[in-house]
Design a protein around this nucleic acid. Structure first.
Lengths: 218, 218
DNA sequence: GGCTCAATACTCCATTTGTATGATTTTTGC
DNA sequence: GCAAAAATCATACAAATGGAGTATTGAGCC
């Protein structure tokens, strides 16, 4: 046995998370030292301390597992994400695939099957529960139009001008730089920003930009 | 065991075809009375006498297995096609999926796995060898493969502590809030942030967070 | 006409942040 | 054990930012 497969678990339910950890740690060739009860913690920690395979629950309090994958995958393309779900909800599956998930299993899968799946995933496969695979396979038959991304309705309450300014803030511009670009006074920009903060219920640039970029609950 | 799953086999190589038939007929709940050595015969016969599941070789003399599926599937939408192939050739996989194939397995799969797969297929699943699934899954996530070479190496030059602080900044925290969370003085946090700015070549929080979140090209 | 809203603009003030310089203690790699 | 890297803290100053109040103009609506 050479180096074990390093596994992380993101699952809010205590019993399930612990069972999974025990299963993984009890098997030869696997080790799991990183478990998380929510996506926020996982995102933060896994960015800094990547692992080989992440077992990610989809339905998490706060940020869901799919969002978490969407943020983590670009940072660590080699990290493999196995989505764990109770039901094979169609939309979720495709959403997760687009976010960069590599594998899908139903929680009712047997322990042996789960371990096999982790190994397969680590070896470059994409193990999937077959009912989920059916949905994916079926999507090819009817040439699906790539669904457009879900918008953030919060931004709708902003005026066009406010969105324009917020967009520039998201690039890291200062008040003055935005003002120069839009040919208005810095005071005006500040007033707009103040109004934006009120509408979005934030108090800092970074928080506002997070909402603008749909990263509301990092 | 109620009604057995009726299986047909389309495979030009005598030894493989016969082994498969023996395997299927020897197992409880399966029966295979229809085997074909080419796509033309299968097309003709299966049109008149449909079965539950068809094990279809892709590389056949004359008409290939994919063409055969393309013609048969519309006539019998409930008939399930399991493509059997030696290599997981990418183009072939997608071509077959579009033709209406439901399942994919590599010929080197174990007999037990094959029988499981047939049963799953009949039960509405789409069992796939995981390396094939990987191709399918990968087709959804269109990151031009920053596999290893051109990763976001910028974050690698940060120390763990710096990444930790940057992570908190990305949530919209102020210097003081970060300091309180990490039990250090605000001065220390500011020093870290300053060092981060130098390494990332930025001068504001928003710009740093953008790099952290890989959003360089807004 | 009167009303509302968006966009523009100003002032004043307190706080936060960015930059610079310097220093001490821990950790880590060889 | 030593040298390098990382983490810690301090002081100081200038710039940027967040917050509050006020005001003018023009567009659209009833």
């Amino acid at each position: 046995m050479n180096t074990p497969i390093i596994v992380a678990i993101v699952e809010d339910k205590d019993d399930i998370r612990q069972s999974l950890a025990i299963l993984v740690n009890g098997a030869d060739g696997f080790v799991c030292k990183q478990t998380y009860v929510n996506a926020e913690d996982a995102l933060d920690d896994l960015t800094r301390y990547p692992v080989d395979v992440v077992l990610m629950d989809i339905d998490l309090p706060g940020m869901n597992g799919i969002e978490c994958v969407r943020l983590l995958k670009p940072r660590h393309p080699d990290m493999q994400f196995m989505m764990c779900t109770i039901y094979d909800e169609e939309e979720k599956v495709f959403e997760a695939l687009k976010a960069g998930a590599n594998s899908f299993i139903l929680k009712r899968s047997s322990p042996a099957r789960l371990l096999d799946a982790i190994r397969e995933l680590h070896d470059g496969g994409s193990p999937m529960s077959s009912s989920i695979a059916r949905k994916v396979v079926g999507s090819f038959f009817n040439v699906p139009a790539p669904a457009e991304a879900e918008r953030n309705t919060e931004l709708d309450i902003l005026t066009p001008r406010e969105r324009e300014i917020l967009g520039r803030l998201s690039k890291g511009y200062s008040h003055k730089e935005v003002a120069d670009e839009l040919f208005v006074s810095p005071t005006t920009v500040r007033k707009h920003i103040f109004n934006i903060y009120e509408k979005l219920q934030v108090h800092t640039k970074v928080a506002a930009v997070n909402k603008y970029l749909n990263r509301t609950n990092l």
